[in-house]
């Protein structure tokens, strides 16, 4: 097994480092979709390469060693690969489970609320909050419909045009299936931690994408920017009031509220071909490396038979 089996790992480092920068320069829709796709390919590539490396352990099994002959991969590498593979699969399983559990719990609460048949659910909670939760079940057997959850605190913080902007934003998430892109990126990052920065950018770009959709719906960049800023400040004020007198560590994350508002203060970006091009090159490299290494594995298997 030659050096190309390691190529997917090199490509993942590149995707992790360059992917976010290039994708942020494209329109959010192109950037989010392309980056999520390339991150998924990167994860599949590294998983497969890891699995191949792990199988090189067979040249140490006494009665197979003679048939196979020595494979030029150190045993230590094969061992590390095996451990990494197991860890990756465990992490991916927990990502899937966590996601399913959270969706189920949220839908359980929604189901108990006696709401009129609407895709918007309002909670009697003074804390400003808003999120979209995708439906559950398959298209044929729907268990729960997708819903937008708002709190009374959020409704009180926004004026009517801002509320329309918020609803347009959340509906865009559901309509464009952003949760699928984010789930794919999340799984990929669980499979390969080198992809975590790119995963975070997919999350940010999905928010940006929904913001631009909201702009198209309400017809004003400034209005959407103001809705985000107003909602974020109301939530921050509420969090500060709740934390008064106590030392509470507030979690910051990478979904970049300020960056989103700043982007809305600028004119819309034009699609960047470079992002697609870069993704294509990286994807081909990873696939070629995997095919090459797979060919070598098949050769080893043939020698066995």
């Amino acid at each position: 097994m030659n050096i190309t089996v390691y190529l997917p790992f090199v490509a993942s480092v590149l995707i992790g480092l360059a992917g976010p920068i290039v994708a942020r320069r494209a329109t959010p829709a192109v950037g989010a979709t392309t980056l999520a796709a390339i991150v998924a390919i990167g994860a599949i590539g590294t998983l497969w390469a890891t699995a191949l490396l792990a199988t090189t352990f067979i040249d140490d099994v006494p009665f197979l060693a003679r048939a196979v002959g020595p494979i030029p991969v150190p045993d230590s590498v094969a061992l590390v690969a095996l451990a990494a593979l197991v860890m990756a699969l465990v992490r991916m399983g927990s990502v899937l489970r966590r996601r399913r559990r959270l969706y189920r719990r949220i839908h359980d609460v929604i189901a108990d609320l006696e709401t009129v048949d609407s895709d918007v659910v309002v909670l009697a909670d003074a804390r400003p909050d808003a999120f979209a939760v995708p439906g559950r079940g398959t298209a044929r057997r729907r268990r729960n419909e997708p819903r937008i959850v708002l709190t009374e605190g959020m409704l009180a913080a926004l004026d009517n045009p801002q509320k329309s902007a918020l609803l347009a934003h959340e509906r865009a998430h559901l309509r464009d299936g952003h949760h699928r892109l984010r789930a794919a990126a999340d799984l990929a990052a669980a499979a390969n931690p080198l992809l975590i920065p790119a995963r975070n950018t997919v999350g940010f770009l999905c928010e940006r994408w929904a913001d631009e959709r909201a702009v198209a719906d309400v017809g004003s960049r400034r209005l959407v920017a103001n809705a985000i800023a107003t909602a974020a400040l109301a939530q921050a004020a509420d969090a500060r009031a709740a934390a008064a007198g106590r030392q509470v560590a507030l979690g910051f994350n990478h979904l970049g509220t300020v960056d989103r508002v700043a982007a809305l203060h600028r004119p819309p970006a034009s699609a960047l071909r470079a992002a697609t091009f870069l993704a294509l090159v990286a994807g081909v490299c990873i696939l070629a490396a995997d095919v090459n290494a797979t060919g070598e594995l098949l050769e080893i298997v043939r020698r066995l038979i």
Binding site: A229, T230, A231, L233, N253, L255, V258, H265
Partner: peptide
């Protein structure tokens, strides 16, 4: 990890970010 799972409109701000948003408004 709910911030990473849910499509949330807004998330927690640092004090600097608050200032920036207030200025933008």
């Amino acid at each position: 990890k709910h911030d990473e799972i849910l499509q949330r409109f807004i998330t927690a701000l640092s004090p600097d970010e608050e200032d920036a948003l207030r200025a933008a408004l």
